[in-house]
């Protein structure tokens, strides 16, 4: 690993000033489960690392004013341990459980996962179907970005120079709902998703669908949401919906799966997730966190 200067600011103000000063030659450090691997491999070689773990105001996880505020320092383990997240944001809870393994989840953060912006980011589909908002701070002030506009390419986001994501805001849903995140990997142990699908069913037959690992960025499948809107979910309807859902994605072949397999599995997992969400909405689905593949 190349040598670098290490800063651990104690306030956000200090952090934004540092990040503004060092720009592209610096990297922000949260859990480090992605960044330290990239630095060890020599893929990323910053001159400056700014560790955000000293900033108290980023250590936030609370439901306030109709939003769940997930501060940048919040780890996946903390999300899993939170009863608020489990009860009111169960898709985020479920997705968190399927990320890597305990030893990674204890350090990795949701904000870090989103900012790494890999196509297979497990937390992204859950945030997409819950209409999350990314809050970024910089010397210029704060900015709110809908999660659906946040990703622009593999490992690329809309963040501008000097912007630090301070938290993710997820709106509460007042109506009854059910949701699910299904991750298809090569096996049940720690793996990256070959296909990840989150769905949300809200009473009154409103649905949301999002994918990861099957497009350059995690995507929301809005066309199929429109198609399903107002309809009761049946096997027949899902068969009709599948090709519409798949229009949102454009998988590639790589060492983890072929394009064809990803395409086919996206349909299978979409249908399975949707059925699960509806069952959960009705109160008789499998428990959140159960393995459905």
């Amino acid at each position: 690993m190349k040598e670098f200067d290490y800063y651990k600011p104690l306030t956000l103000k200090e952090a934004t000033a540092l990040y503004d000063r060092y720009g592209a030659s610096s990297k922000l450090l949260l859990g480090g489960t992605d960044l330290v691997v990239l630095m060890s491999d020599g893929v990323v070689n910053p001159d400056v690392v700014i560790d955000l773990k000293g900033i108290e105001e980023l250590k936030r996880l609370e439901l306030k004013d109709g939003f769940l505020h997930i501060g940048a320092r919040t780890t996946f383990s903390e999300l899993i341990e939170s009863s608020v997240v489990k009860e009111k944001f169960p898709i985020i809870w479920e997705a968190s459980r399927f990320i890597a393994s305990v030893g990674i989840r204890n350090k990795a953060t949701l904000v870090g996962n989103i900012c790494s912006a890999v196509p297979s980011a497990d937390s992204a589909p859950a945030l997409l179907v819950r209409d999350a908002v990314v809050v970024a701070a910089s010397e210029e002030g704060n900015r709110e970005i809908p999660i659906s506009e946040f990703f622009v390419g593999p490992r690329k986001t809309v963040l501008k120079k000097g912007e630090i994501v301070t938290e993710i805001k997820v709106p509460e849903i007042k109506n009854k709902f059910g949701g699910s995140y299904i991750k298809l990997g090569r096996y049940s142990g720690e793996d990256l998703a070959q296909v990840g699908v989150a769905t949300l069913a809200v009473e009154g037959n409103k649905y949301s669908v999002a994918f990861c690992a099957v497009a350059p960025v995690p995507v929301r499948a809005t066309e199929v949401e429109e198609f399903l809107k107002g309809k009761e979910i049946t096997d027949e309807l899902l068969n009709e919906a599948k090709p519409i859902a798949l229009k949102a994605i454009s998988p590639i072949s790589d060492v983890r799966a072929s394009k064809e397999y990803r395409m086919r599995m996206s349909g299978v997992v979409f249908a399975r997730s949707m059925k699960t969400s509806v069952l959960r909405l009705e109160g008789n689905g499998p428990e959140y966190g159960d393995r459905l593949v």
Binding site: T33, V36, V37, V49
Partner: peptide
């Protein structure tokens, strides 16, 4: 060396972490 095998696990404030990908 990539946090994938768990052989380097230690407890940080009571929580297991991978010391090979921790500075």
């Amino acid at each position: 060396g990539r946090g994938e095998c768990g052989a380097c696990s230690v407890l940080l404030n009571g929580k297991s972490i991978r010391s090979c990908i921790t500075l």
